[in-house]
Structure formats: C-alpha cells, structure tokens
Amino acid sequence: MSVDETTTARSTSLADVAHEPGAAKPDPILVADHVVRRFGGMTAVDVDHLEVQEGVITALIGPNGAGKTTFFNLLTGFDTPNTGEWTFQGRSLSGKSGAAVAKAGVVRTFQLTKALGRLTVLQNMLLASRDNPGENLWLSWLPFLWKKHEADSTEKAMEILARFKLDTKANDYAGSLSGGQRKLLEMARALMTDPTMIMLDEPMAGVNPALVQSLLGHVQALRDEGMTVLFVEHDMHAVRHISDWVVVMAEGRIVAEGPPSSVMKDEAVVDAYLGAHHDTDLGDDSLLDPAVLARYEAEEEER
C-alpha cells in the first residue's frame, strides 16, 4: 500500500464528518469539552468541544497567539485549565499530571526542543524507555536486575535512531546536534515510549528546509503504523500536504475544521490569518521539487 492510498483510506474515514467546529468523528480517541484557560483578564483558550479521530494526522493551526500551544499544554498536563474536561480512549485525563498523561500513552514534544543536551543521544533515548526496573531507587544499585532491560532498550533505541539517521551520533552529547537533528531526536525519543498518540508542538519551527521534508515523512510513517498524530503549526501551507484533518484556532477558539483542501478556503480561516498578521506565502512549494529536495538532503547528510 503506497502512502497515497493510505492517505485516501484514512481520509475516507473522515469523509462523512461535517466541516464545522466541534464536529463529531466516527472513532474519536481524544475528546475535549469546555476547556477554558485565562491569564489575568485575558482568555487564552476557550474550546467548547473537540474530537480527534484515531489513526489520522490532525493539524492544529492558527496564527501566532491563537492559543494553540496553551491548549496543547492543557491537554498534556503541563498547565491547569480554569474549567474543562477531556478524555483519552474513554478515560478522563483532566487534572492529570504531565507524567500521568504520558503514561496513558499520549507523548508530546516541545516547540523549543527539549533534547537533553548534557546527556548523549543514546542516553536521551534510554531515558524514555518505559517500566525500566533500574529507574526504581531500590533496584537501581543492583545492576544485574536491570541489565537485560537496558540491553533490550539499547537495541530498540538504535533501531529507532537508525530510522531517523541519528545512529552514528548515538554517543555524542545531544547538545552538539543541529536544531533539526534535535527535533528528530525528540521525536525518536517520544517513540521510545511506545505511544498511542503523539503530539508535536511546531515540529517544523526553525528546522532546515531539507529536514522539514524528512520530518514530514517520518510523521506520515507514524500514522501509517497506526499512531494518532496531533500537531501544532502556525504555517497553514506547511500542513497541507500531510494532514488528514485540520483544526483552526483563532483567539483561543476553534473557528473551523475540515480536510486541508477545504479548510484553507474557509472565510473564517482567511480572516483569522489576515486579521492577526499576514506573512504572505509561507508555503515553500519548491521543496516538492525532487531535485531541490535531493540537494538539501545531501547537505543534511554531510552534517
């Protein structure tokens, strides 16, 4: 099954969904209701209802200051809302800590990459491994109890690193990686936790254009393996080619939902972007030219 066919198959699951804010989905994995977060007098997030379809790539877009990242932080337990509840796979996650959300299978990345620069790339990966007996204080000083888990995790980590072309850097400090490589590492590290759903906060921000394409490829591959992907992006053109469903936020509210092709034409969306700021054409379609891509990728390889 080629990537295109998969996309089509996934998109058909959303074919009957209404193109309106808060639309009901056939298999929602994440459902949020009445989520409100205020800072002082300002309401940063006010989301009435949102469902995220299982097994597809959903993009959460909106101009800067639309409350996307705040909403993201709320859903992942890194901020506390004034009101609101949300469920993941039918279980409530509202009020849970960031760690508990991750344990439930929702793992996130950060807009400003949080690769741990003073650990090596491999240590970063191993840190993410689940249920490591060696992470229990009582067992940690008895290496024979966790050596096997550690060896298994190392093997798994190297596989994932190879996939992200980071295996040659396994023993370098993560601080020595380029910005794009750190984004990749953060994504690879998230995969180490075997997540059900992965939430990426502006994965393309500040990344070398050649890597953007490879990043997007990785995101699609995750979806094809059955993972649910939700990612935040402020550039609406960048999401067009890979997302199955787009949710648009402006001034804290969801203003539109729909497949990428139709949502871009939505009046409310155009208004939201024009109203906030108009940074003209952010979509770099030249990246789709295979020749240009190959050149960029060759450059990135040499790093």
């Binding site: 992942t76 890194f78 800590s97 960031g98 760690a99 508990a100 991750a102 344990k103 793992v107 996130r108 990345t109 950060f110 949080k114 690769a115 741990l116 620069g117 003073r118 650990l119 240590q123 191993l126 840190l127 993410a128 491994s129 689940r130 490591n132 060696g134 992470e135 229990n136 204080l137 940690s140 000083w141 290496p143 966790w146 550690e150 590290r189 998230a190 180490m192 936790t193």
Partner: peptide
C-alpha cells in the same frame, strides 16, 4: 544506573522528563 539517568535528565529539563512519563 537508569535511576541516576533520570536525575540527570531532571537536572537539565524537568519538563522533558515529565513528558516521558
């Protein structure tokens, strides 16, 4: 041990470690 590795992760950025569960 892996326990010490978690500590070092926290030392650098506790949010990153929290996001890993």
């Amino acid at each position: 041990s892996p326990w010490g590795r978690v500590l070092k992760g926290i030392r650098e950025d506790e949010d990153a470690v929290r996001a890993l569960g």
